[in-house]
């Protein structure tokens, strides 16, 4: 009260004479509080429009999220399949997927040359069957060379196919690839149905891994 009276007498504003000790902190507190009030006012002003625009955005956003999940699923599937193919594409697997022991057919009155090639072919089959694919490769390659000089090619399609399998059995997918590609491209080839695009892709991967 004494200070208030003194202030009245001197005509000096009270607050200038009697600033509390913590005035600076209190003023800071008031400024922070005022700012909070201001932000709260703007918040109340902004939220209705933000909420309404969110309603418009939400369906679009959920479509994107849904599409994103599907894309991620597909990507996961593709990557998973790719990894599976990569590890599955081994010459051993490619061989065992396709190898069926050749069944000898009886033909009477064969020409001597044809009979000789057939004997060789069966010999190659024996090597392939007994786990000696390199010898089988030599024999089958020799048959293909002989066939080029023959007026009528004997067991040519069979030899090409089994030569490719012999390469695979010998873990040499690279030389098997052009043979299998040829069989795949030729729809009239006896073993065309055996070499699908999928199988050929796996052989290509195996050849690429072998490089």
């Amino acid at each position: 009260m004494l200070i208030l009276r003194l202030h009245k007498n001197l005509k000096v504003p009270y607050n200038m004479m009697n600033e509390p000790e913590n005035n600076e902190t209190l003023v800071d507190a008031l400024k922070a509080y005022g700012l909070k009030q201001d932000i709260n006012r703007i918040h109340k002003e902004m939220m209705p429009s933000l909420k309404s625009s969110e309603k418009n955005i939400a369906p679009v956003r959920s479509i994107f999220r849904y599409a994103g999940r599907i894309a991620a699923g597909i990507l996961f599937l593709v990557i998973g399949t790719g990894i599976f193919i990569y590890f599955d594409a081994t010459p051993e697997n490619l061989f065992s997927n396709k190898y069926v022991p050749y069944e000898e057919s009886v033909q009477r009155g064969e020409a001597p040359a044809a009979a000789a090639i057939k004997r060789k072919f069966l010999e190659g089959q024996k090597f392939l069957n007994s786990g000696d694919p390199l010898k089988a490769v030599l024999i089958f390659s020799e048959i293909l060379r002989s066939n080029t000089q023959m007026p009528e090619k004997i067991l040519n399609d069979d030899t090409e196919f089994y030569l490719a399998l012999s390469y695979l059995k010998a873990e040499e997918p690279s030389p098997a690839l052009p043979l299998l590609q040829k069989i795949h491209d030729n729809t009239g080839h006896l073993y065309h149905d055996q070499v699908s695009s999928w199988y050929l892709l796996k052989v290509k991967i195996a050849a690429w891994k072998d490089k």
Binding site: L4, P13, Y14, N15, N18, P20, E21, N22, N23, T25, L26, A29, L30
Partner: peptide
């Protein structure tokens, strides 16, 4: 108004202290 302001500030300081 000045007096009221001073009283308010004083009150704030008391609560604060």
């Amino acid at each position: 108004v000045r007096n009221k302001k001073a009283k308010c500030m004083k009150s704030l300081e008391e609560k604060f202290s």
